[in-house]
């Protein structure tokens, strides 16, 4: 696994001093982080620290109060979700949030931006390509989203986001509640997507999955970032692990 210091790589997503409130509670207190092109960055920490809120704030699903969110050189701070998505960021939410009343195929097609697959772009995702990567979805393509297993729903949530050809994926707890063998499959898929050139900002409870995928790691304490470093640096820092991860 290569280690990606920020020095040599271009900054892709940059967050500076981000503050978000839910009503009176200050749930993100000055979060700063970066994701480089081609990088997988894991955002780890205990429950309720603000990891999911960080992803939601980037996506425009939670309103930030102050700070900066810059993606590919353009500010997307405070933009509504559809604009963030159109800028090239895909979202794979916690608990998958598959549309239960739509078929598997419609769940994928709804992710196609503007409704038309870009045939002129050879790298654009098509249904055929999607079914090659996710053969289990092909078998279930006429089933309703509600009738899928947890693992299939997770694959579908990832596939749905990919249909929009994002250059950065925000992935929230992709292995939660899945059987170990499916956890492996999800891990492998994320690695494969990253090899295709998609950067990933990953929130994950399963430390093995996170550490095996990520190039760099941020540890979150209550509403703030407590540690930044490569996976190797985190390995060599038992204090940080004890402070931010161990229960």
């Amino acid at each position: 696994m290569p280690t990606w210091g920020m020095g040599g790589c271009s900054v892709f997503l940059e967050i500076n001093d981000l503050n978000t409130y839910y009503g009176p509670s200050h749930v993100l207190q000055g979060i700063s982080l970066t994701v480089a092109k081609g990088e997988i960055v894991a955002l780890l920490g205990r429950n309720g620290m603000g990891k999911s809120t960080t992803l939601k704030t980037i996506m425009g699903l939670a309103k930030p109060k102050s700070g900066q969110v810059v993606f590919q050189g353009n500010s997307i701070f405070g933009n509504p979700p559809h604009k963030v998505s159109m800028a090239g960021i895909g979202y794979v939410p916690e608990e998958r949030r598959i549309f239960p009343n739509l078929s598997v195929e419609d769940n994928l097609l709804i992710g196609v931006k503007g409704g038309v697959i870009d045939q002129s772009n050879p790298d654009a995702w098509t249904l055929e390509k999607m079914y090659e990567v996710f053969p289990s979805l092909k078998k279930r393509r006429t089933n309703k989203g509600a009738n899928l297993s947890g693992g299939e729903q997770q694959m579908l949530a990832i596939g749905r986001a990919l249909m929009g050809n994002p250059s950065l994926l925000l992935v929230d707890e992709p292995t939660e509640g899945l059987a170990p063998i499916i956890v492996e499959a999800v891990r492998d898929i994320l690695a494969e997507i990253n090899k295709m050139g998609v950067s990933i900002l990953l929130v994950e409870h399963n430390l093995n999955v996170a550490m095996s995928l990520a190039h760099r790691v941020y540890l979150m304490g209550k509403a703030h970032i407590g540690f930044v470093g490569t996976v190797k640096e985190l390995d060599n820092n038992p204090d940080a692990r004890a402070q931010y991860l161990e229960v």
Binding site: L61, M86, P100
Partner: peptide
Amino acid sequence: TRLGMIIRAAVSDRDMVSALGINMP
């Protein structure tokens, strides 16, 4: 139609629909 698909999806989860690049307003 695609519009109908969007409407049906939005009945169950409109935030998720907008996170897929669809202008929900």
